[in-house]
Design a protein around this nucleic acid. Structure first.
Lengths: 126, 126
DNA sequence: AAGTATATACGAATAACTTCGTAGTTGCAA
DNA sequence: TTGCAACTACGAAGTTATTCGTATATACTT
């Protein structure tokens, strides 16, 4: 069970590892630099810290270490979400959902998915 | 237009101002202490900073200053939400909604509200 | 009027996170 | 085999946010 909340920088790195799989520091740093400027050793340092915290594991058998996410995207999102709901929406997930739907340009398919989920939830309520 | 992101502490204070309306530092500090221990001058300092940032306005005509939120709850939530969706859900509001619904114990009424909203959105799509 | 309680202001310590310089190692290419 | 490129490790500076001690002013109570 992993409940350690990643910091903003750590989360950005996790996103990359989730999307592209196990990667070197160089690769992650390049991806980060697609969106913002950040030095190589900065990325290295943060990934080392993440390794200490067990947010990632690393393979050090080669000179170039390969890092893998050690926490699942779903669990991490779930943790972040629940603390976000508490801090920003006073605990009301429904309020958050309403706001998110209100401004999102969800596709028809996505709306259908959501409706299906709601139907499923309603079923368990009876 | 106010897009300055409040910090965690500032947000807690805003929540209190939103819920109870214009308040003194003493009042806010007491409310904060319902959930966590925090010194009076700490709360004072943060509220002064918030005043500098224009997150709150204050009435200083009396010895006991009265602080009011200067940003709306909805707008603030909207800002926080959109940056949260980007940082934690790679921009997918739908994914967030699905996760939020998945673990929330929404009441039947709330689910109905959400369904109504979806219906309304679908209508604008045709 | 004196003493106590309650305010604000402000500077500085602490803490958490980010950033980067520098040193040292290893591999590769001329 | 020398020199350059790319890697890790590490310490320390920089940044932002939080916390609180202390000074000072104002009101209330007896």
């Amino acid at each position: 069970m992993q409940s350690n909340k990643p910091t903003e920088s750590e989360l950005q790195i996790l996103q990359i590892l989730w999307e592209f799989g196990p990667s070197s520091v160089r690769y992650v740093n390049d991806k980060l630099n697609d969106t913002r400027e950040v030095g190589y050793t900065t990325t290295l340092k943060i990934m080392q810290i993440m390794s200490d915290k067990d947010l990632v594991s690393r393979d050090t058998t080669q000179r170039t270490h390969i890092y893998s996410s050690h926490v699942s995207e779903d669990h991490t999102q779930q943790n972040l979400l629940s603390s976000f709901i508490n801090s920003a929406f006073r605990g009301s997930a429904t309020k958050l959902v309403m706001q998110a739907l209100g401004t999102d340009k969800a596709t028809t398919e996505e709306l259908q998915e959501i409706k299906d989920l709601i139907a499923k939830i309603e079923k368990t309520k009876s």
